[in-house]
Amino acid sequence: MTPLEVIFWIASAVILISAIMMVTRRNLVHAALFLIVTLFGVAVYYVLLEASFLAVVQILVYIGAIAILVIFAVMLTRQVTNPGQLFNKHASLALVMSILVFIGLYLALSVWPEFSAVAPEADTAAAISNLGTAFFVEEDGQPVYLLATMTASVLLLIPLVGAIFVARQKE
């Protein structure tokens, strides 16, 4: 077992266990904290996959923004702890469905020839600069992802405006 593999298994365990913990918590603040732990585990994955830019973004955007937003929402709705039933009446059926989806995904993937592929050697140090140029710089006169970047920024702006409008307290 290489140190990377050890880290991988620890990260996997953290992701799955904290995810299960999150789903089953009665206290929503606890659930949000377990979500943060899960997201942190995913960030570790990104590091293992040598996508360091995404790892940083994962921590900044997810843990720094989204998770905090969720905690605020929990607090504002004043339903930190659920008084009644935690799960709805379809909970057992939902559990079966989820397991079936997992099995289905596993079966679908296992027949795929690349399922057990091994990571090829790659100059991942250059990946960040490649990503940066892919986002903004033209390549052979063609802005490969420039349009997608711009669209994404607009896509981010409009829901935020909409969210403010929806949530605005009317006089």
Partner: peptide
């Protein structure tokens, strides 16, 4: 009930898959 709808949707997707 939105969740009931989603269960049915997943079931449908699963059957389709």
């Amino acid at each position: 009930n939105i969740q009931q709808y989603m269960i049915i949707a997943v079931l449908g997707a699963f059957v389709a898959l």
